[in-house]
Amino acid sequence: MNRYKPHICVVFEDDKCRQLAHGFVLNHRIDDRRMQVMPPAGGWSNVLEIFRKEYVPYLHRFPEGYVVLVIDFDGRVIDRQQEFAKAIPEKLKPRVFVIGLKDDPETFKRQIGLNLNFEQIGMQLADECLDATFNIRQHEQCDHNKPEFDRCWQSTKDFLVRGTMF
């Protein structure tokens, strides 16, 4: 990944999100060299802490960088959104996105009931973003993300999507 070109760092909470994120990247239309999926942070509060300590300075140093923070909202969407909003410096807000499932990935997987594994869910989410369709994206576990998802996609799709595999 070239830090001097537009790129995304994905910081996520747990191992299930890892599989979702890697499924997203596996979509052949996604340029995985513009996206670095980091190791799981181990809890939403660690995601916040890592963002503060590592990614605020990183984003100041690398103006082409974007950060997607993926957390489980554990049923407290508004509270967590506000907590993260406080931690993101105003200047960096256009390049930082906070998304996640209303409860947790296991609940989401069970509720969508399509017999997909986490990686396959990630691949389908990528397809829905690329094709501007809404199937699992509008599931109640996910639909609170729509404004943030749209903002993220509009900001990153020009460099994240490619016509060919390489």
Binding site: R18, Q19, H22, G23, V25, L26, H28, D32, V37, P39, N117, F118, E119, M165, F166
Partner: peptide
């Protein structure tokens, strides 16, 4: 990821590893 993407299109990729980053690039399934 490049090799896995290749195999998603056609063919098959089977790997062995001890490397944590490689381990993280595969799903539990």
């Amino acid at each position: 990821t490049s090799l896995r993407k290749m195999a998603c299109q056609r063919g098959q990729f089977i790997a062995t590893t001890h490397h944590p980053e490689t381990i993280r690039r595969f799903s539990d399934d």
